[in-house]
Amino acid sequence: MTASTTKKQERGARIEERGETATPNKSHPSILNPQSSILLNTTAEDHHIARMAAVALGLTVLENAIPSPLPGVKPGLANIVTLIVLARYGLRAAAWVSLLRVVAGSLLFGSFLAPGFFLSLSGAVLSLLVLAFAQHLPPRWFGPVSHSIYAAFAHIAGQMLVVYLWLIPHAGIAYLIPVFAAAALVFGTVNGLIAARFMDTGTETLSTKNTNVTK
């Protein structure tokens, strides 16, 4: 979903660039005059957000293929992308990437507006809220690992809140909280370490680093 949007946006931008420099072709005025067609004016930042959201989406698809011992316990690999975007481009871009990933991911898996969608949405929103505070922690002392752990705990808290208030209003789900909290701690740490590894050399792009890691 997001991948195709990205492509469209890029194509749109390219047409726009061409439209400014080249002279309009008289036989196809509608193609070479982007102002008259339905076209979103996208910025380089938009493209970047779309690209990062697509990476996050890919990780979501990947992790859905991994069998989980307990429904709901997932590594949350897409949060690595959110953490990197937060560190490099700020909270606004991170929120875009995270929420785009949630919506597009639900469209991919056919769970848009289903309970699973609201679970990931509440988790994403709450961890973004926590990240908004956590990013102001002194960077000398706190790195992406801390951000990741706080976000993972917030994620699980948001999900449990929705589960308790809406899906299973029974105190019995409290018995699962320690399991989810332990998973949040472990996966939060691992994701934070991966994000930190990607970030420690800022010059390399994400794709080249990806190949380095797989070697």
Binding site: L137, P138, R140, W141, F142, G143, P144, V145, S146, I149, Y150, F153, A181, A184, L185, G188, T189, G192, L193, A196, R197, D200
Partner: peptide, 16 residues
Amino acid sequence: HLKPGDWLTLLLGSIC
């Protein structure tokens, strides 16, 4: 990649 505060966070998380 683990700064002192990260260890603190890990400790707090484990206690939690």
